[in-house]
Design a protein around this nucleic acid. Structure first.
Lengths: 217, 217
DNA sequence: CGATTAACCTAGTAGACATTAGGTAGAGCC
DNA sequence: GGCTCTACCTAATGTCTACTAGGTTAATCG
C-alpha cells in the first residue's frame, strides 16, 4: 500500500503574526456567531483558520479573552456607524428611519458580528457581563430616538420610567428579531425590512403617544 | 473531635417513584430555564431534587429525553390555554387583547416553563429541532390573530407571504422580549404589560394595514 | 419478625475540550 | 550555506460532565 499522499505533503503556508491573527479573528467571529460562546470550540476556530489549536494561544490568552476582544472590536465599529448616522437637527421621523436603515445596513454587511453581539447572550458569567454592557450602551445610544423632545425622559417618574423601559424593550426585540429573520430570508431587499420595522415601531409608538391607546377610554 | 453530626444523620426520606419523578421534573424545569440546555447539569437537577444524579436516570433515559418530555408537557399546557382563550366570534381587537392577556398570564403563572420553551433556543441539534417545532406550532396557533378576515393569508403571493412572515416575527419578538423584561420587573402589574403590547402591536399593525405606511406615498 | 422489592447511593468510566510543554521547520539575514 | 527567530506542530494534562455498574437500606407485606 503506497503511502504517497495524492497531494504531495500539503505545502504549509506561513503567515506573519498579524495576518494570522486577523484570520483567526475572522474565523472566531463566525464560529462564535454560529454556535454561541459555549459551543464554539477552539479546535474549530483553529481549523477554520488553517492552523492547529495552540496557535490561537500565541495570539490570545484564553477563549474568553478572544471573545471579549472580538466583542469590543465589533461593537466599536457599530457605535461608529451609529454616531455617524445620528446627526442632530433632522425631524424625529427621519432620524428614526435613518437609524433603522443604519442598523439593517450593519446587519447586512456584518452577518457574523451582529449575531455575536446580540444574538448569543448565554455563556459564562464573565461573558454575560460583557453582553449586558453592550446592551446597556446600545440602549443609551438609541434611546434618544424614542424621546419626542430631547431630554424628556430625564424628569420621568418611576411609572413613566417603566413605560419607557418597555418601549425600548419592544424596539430592541423587534430590531433583533427582524435581523435574525432577515438572515434566513436574505433575498428580501433591505428597504422592505426597514419599512416593516418603521411601520411597526414608528406608527405604533406615534399613535400610542398621541393618546390613541388601548383600552379605549 | 466528636463526629456526631449536629443534626443527627440526615433522616433520608424516600418518595414513591411518581412523587420523585414529579420533584425532578419541577427542578429540571427550573434549571433548564435558568441555565439553558447545555449549561444545565444533571448534578444540579439532582441536587435540587434532593437525590443523587443516578436517580435521574431511573426516570429518564438521558438528559435530552428529560428535556424533550418537559418541553412536550409544558407546551401541551400552553396550547390548551390558547385554544381555551381563542374563542371565535369576538371582534378581532378583543381577540388580540384576550390572546395577549392569556400569554402574559401563562408567563406569570409558569415563570420557568415559558423560558424553557422560548427563551433558550441553543443546544444540541436534536434539541434545536424540537424548539423549531414549538416555534412553528406557536405561529400556527396565533397567526389567525393577524389576519383581518379568516383565511385571508391562504391566497397570498410570495411577497405578501414574506410581509406576513415579518409581521409574525415582530409579534413573536415583542411577546418574548416583553415577557423576559417583565420577569425582571415583576412588580409591574400585568394589565400594564398587556396594554403596552397591545398598543405596540395592534395600533401599529392596524394603522399600517389601513394604508398609513412608511415611507409616506 | 423476616423476606422481597425498589428507591437510593458510592464509585467509577468515557469523551469532550480548554490549556500547556516542549519540540520542529520555514524564512529572512549575513 | 549556515544562524536565528518565530510560526507552527504533536502530545500531553486536567477538568468537567453525561452516563453506568453494582451494592445498600428503607419501606411493605406475609
Amino acid at each position: 500500500m503506497s503511502n504517497t499522499p495524492p497531494t504531495p505533503a500539503a505545502p504549509r503556508k506561513r503567515l506573519t503574526a498579524d495576518a494570522r491573527r486577523e484570520v483567526i479573528e475572522r474565523a472566531a467571529t463566525e464560529v462564535f456567531a454560529e454556535r454561541g460562546y459555549r459551543s464554539a470550540s477552539i479546535d474549530e476556530i483553529a481549523r477554520r483558520s488553517g492552523v492547529s489549536a495552540p496557535v490561537v494561544y500565541d495570539h490570545f490568552r484564553s477563549k474568553q479573552d478572544l471573545h471579549r476582544r472580538l466583542l469590543e472590536r465589533h461593537f466599536a465599529e457599530l457605535r461608529e456607524i451609529w454616531t455617524e448616522y445620528m446627526v442632530q437637527g433632522d425631524p424625529p421621523e427621519l432620524r428614526m428611519a435613518r437609524a433603522l436603515d443604519a442598523w439593517f445596513g450593519y446587519v447586512q454587511t456584518h452577518p457574523y458580528a451582529w449575531r455575536m453581539l446580540f444574538s448569543d447572550t448565554s455563556g459564562d458569567p464573565g461573558v454575560q457581563q460583557i453582553h449586558r454592557e453592550v446592551a446597556a450602551q446600545s440602549r443609551a445610544a438609541l434611546l434618544p430616538l424614542l424621546a419626542r423632545e430631547p431630554g424628556a425622559q430625564e424628569v420621568a417618574g418611576s411609572a413613566e420610567q417603566e413605560a419607557l423601559d418597555m418601549v425600548w424593550e419592544i424596539m430592541r426585540a423587534v430590531l433583533q428579531g427582524l435581523a435574525l429573520w432577515w438572515y434566513e430570508h436574505q433575498h428580501v431587499p433591505r428597504e422592505q425590512v426597514v419599512a416593516t420595522a418603521m411601520n411597526a415601531l414608528w406608527i405604533g409608538f406615534d399613535r400610542a403617544r398621541s393618546g390613541e391607546t388601548w383600552p379605549p377610554a
